[in-house]
């Protein structure tokens, strides 16, 4: 069953200055997301990620198009929807700087209509799930960013939301904290079945969290498929780094293209759908004097970069 539906969702902002043309942040975005999915909604800066998520959570009114989340129209039924979704904006805090997270949870519990007992047991449960119990009684201003984000996540989850919207949640975290945060999100999805909708421009967030990826650029959805499918398209190519001991002259090997070279060092790309990598290696070693050789998968970043650069549809 679809929990999030967007149909031709569009948003334009008035341009700066009196006569400036409106800025179209999101144009005709359409997708449908089922319960329990883990979605990465990615795109370069200014692509319209945040604007989309803010329309889906009811913060912004769209200029055109339609959307429902859990059956609600977010911007007209915002308060009903808020009761059933959780949101986490990486750059905005839901906690009180001078207070402890537990004090903030008490207020949030009241806001979401939980009884004191419900809120307390939920906080205990989240403390275990997020391995953060010991952080809940410290002043927020004394927490590291990684610790704070786990406390922020607990705040977003206090009312057991069915859908969790995360906008750049790992921004600014160090590698360890990022990895830890991702594991929590996955665990939450697997144990509670919470639908996860995450925006990011960190490719690792996609690799480690998402099962499906939606790429947006210039306000358009330009790619929407399973992460595993995306991975397969990556595996159709391999990267070769070769250092020759003697100049190879003209490199004419079937299914191989030169990406760049300097002196005797070459970077090659092999289309493995045409020819196996072993074949190519054999030919290389037979025909040329090779000093060193390495084989790699192209980074996911490059593939996504290619998607970004592909002409607008």
């Amino acid at each position: 069953m679809a929990v999030i539906e967007a149909r031709q969702l569009s948003k334009s902002f008035p341009g700066r200055g009196r006569k400036a043309a409106p800025v179209e942040a999101v144009r005709d975005v359409t997708f449908s997301i089922d319960a329990g999915e883990r979605i990465a909604y990615i795109g370069p800066n200014g692509a319209g990620k945040s604007t989309s998520i803010k329309m889906l959570t009811g913060i912004l009114h769209p200029s055109a198009g339609a959307a429902t989340v859990l059956g609600y129209v977010p911007w007209t039924e915002r308060r009903h929807l808020a009761q059933r979704i959780g949101t986490l904006f990486g750059q905005r805090s839901q906690l009180w700087f001078q207070l402890t997270p537990r004090q903030a949870y008490r207020l949030l519990g009241d806001i979401y209509g939980l009884t004191r007992a419900e809120a307390a047991s939920r906080v205990d449960e989240l403390g275990l799930l997020l391995e953060a119990t010991d952080l809940f009684d410290r002043q927020v201003k004394g927490l590291s960013l990684g610790q704070r984000m786990r406390c922020e996540l607990a705040a977003s989850l206090l009312h057991s939301p069915e859908v969790l919207f995360l906008d750049e949640p790992t921004i600014g975290l160090d590698l360890v904290a990022k990895q830890r945060f991702r594991e929590m999100i996955v665990r939450l999805n697997e144990e509670k079945g919470t639908t996860v909708f995450l925006t990011s421009h960190d490719v690792a967030d996609i690799e480690h969290v998402a099962r499906r990826v939606i790429v947006i650029n210039h306000g358009h959805v330009i790619y929407d498929d399973r992460v595993s499918t995306m991975r397969r398209s990556i595996l159709s190519h391999k990267l070769l780094e070769v250092r020759f001991d003697e100049s190879p002259g003209v490199l004419d090997i079937a299914a191989v293209e030169i990406l760049k070279h300097s002196g005797l060092g070459y970077k090659l790309i092999v289309d493995t759908t045409v020819r196996s990598i072993k074949d190519v290696l054999d030919e290389l070693l037979d025909r040329f004097v090779v000093g060193d050789i390495s084989v790699e998968d192209p980074p996911l970043e490059d593939v996504i970069g290619n998607i970004y650069e592909s002409p607008e549809r």
Binding site: T57, G58, R79, Q83, I111
Partner: peptide, 12 residues
Amino acid sequence: GELDPVLTLPVR
């Protein structure tokens, strides 16, 4: 943009 966190809560 500081109204964001307020708007995600089920309150007036």
